[in-house]
Computed example of a mutant assay.
Amino acid sequence: MIIKYTLQRLLMLIPVSLSISVVIFLVVHLLPGDPIDNLMRVGSSPEDRLAMTVKYGLDRTLVEQYLLWIRSILSGDFGEAIVLRRPVSALIWQNLPYSLTLGALAFAFSSIVGMIAGTVSAVAKNPVVEQVVKAFILLGSTVPSFWLALLMILLFSVTLGWFPVSGAKTWTALVLPVLTIGFGGIALVARVTRVALVEIARQDFVTLLHAKGLSRSTILFRHLLPHAFLPVVTILALRIGWILGGAVTVEFVFGRPGLGSLLIRALGQRDYPVVQGCLLMLALAVMLGTLIGDVAQAALDPRVREATT
């Protein structure tokens, strides 16, 4: 049953992927600017410009360029960077490990701390603790990541000198980016965990468990948390793509290599193949996270599987 559901979800990703590729291609090509401007030397003739335009296929119509790009993508070729003059796939695979490392650590940090904060907020009888956690959740949900990154640099790098401002040579260079990306995730996971626990705690079976004399810790860990885990798993799966997307600005602010820094540099140079490749990878990450969340939700809740049959 779960295999059939997974196959259905995979098939649904095909039209979604094609639609996203069209949007990415149009958005990139309709932006003002021309990548050829970054290649031409001062005093270059119109003939030189035309030759460069023909070389990279920019003289073709948008439909022809899109079809050629999709055909190359399906064969595993992301094209050649116009400005850097290197295969786009090589640039992506060179920078992807840095983004994956940063994303994995930020995901683990935000998930663990967020679930703990949400659980404490839901079960704590101390109103001060509950208000502190609520304030933390609100703050994490509203503070922009790039602004938080600048504050982190100012406090922990410039003022205190604890961590490097930029780079990726040592593990200490990961601390501030992980904290920056994970901060917003903590708020989201904590809020979902708290709401789920509060709603489940109001169910009749929980009252029955209290009447049977079970301890609060037994009810929490053996009954409440497993039931509350369903919406948390869904939001955690979505966080997989969101973290890689959120790392775009954070990597650039901290001067780290990665897809984010590569994408922003390519945007400034209007390097269409690189921008398209990076955006497509980020979109695939979001779709993969959504797929994992849907499959995990279906595995935990049979009602989800039955609704699709």
Rank of each mutant, 00 (worst) to 15 (best):
M1E: 13
K4T: 13
K4S: 14
Y5S: 06
Y5R: 10
T6Y: 06
L10G: 00
L13W: 09
L13R: 07
I14H: 02
I14P: 06
L18F: 15
V23L: 15
V23C: 11
F25H: 09
F25N: 04
L31C: 09
P35Y: 10
L39E: 05
G43W: 03
A51P: 01
M52H: 10
K55R: 15
K55S: 08
G57F: 07
L58R: 11
D59C: 07
E64S: 14
Y66V: 02
I70S: 03
R71L: 11
S72G: 15
G79M: 07
G79Q: 06
V83N: 09
L84A: 14
R85E: 13
R86T: 10
A90V: 12
I92R: 10
N95F: 03
S99I: 00
L102N: 01
F109R: 06
T119L: 12
N126D: 07
Q131C: 06
V132I: 15
V132F: 13
G140L: 04
S145F: 11
I153Q: 08
L155C: 08
T159P: 01
L160Q: 02
W162A: 00
S166F: 10
A168M: 08
K169W: 13
W171P: 08
V175H: 11
V175D: 04
V178Q: 08
I181W: 11
I181P: 07
G184D: 01
V189I: 14
V189A: 02
A190V: 05
V198T: 13
V198G: 06
I200R: 11
A201D: 14
D204W: 07
H210R: 15
G213R: 05
S215Y: 05
S215H: 08
R216C: 01
I219D: 04
L225V: 10
P226C: 02
H227A: 15
H227K: 12
F229A: 14
V232G: 02
V233W: 08
G241T: 01
V248H: 03
T249K: 09
V253D: 01
R256D: 00
R256Q: 11
R256F: 01
I264N: 00
A266P: 00
R270T: 00
R270L: 02
D271M: 04
P273F: 11
G277I: 09
C278M: 08
L279D: 00
M281D: 06
A283C: 09
L284T: 06
L288T: 13
D294K: 09
V295D: 04
P302F: 11
V304H: 06
T309V: 15
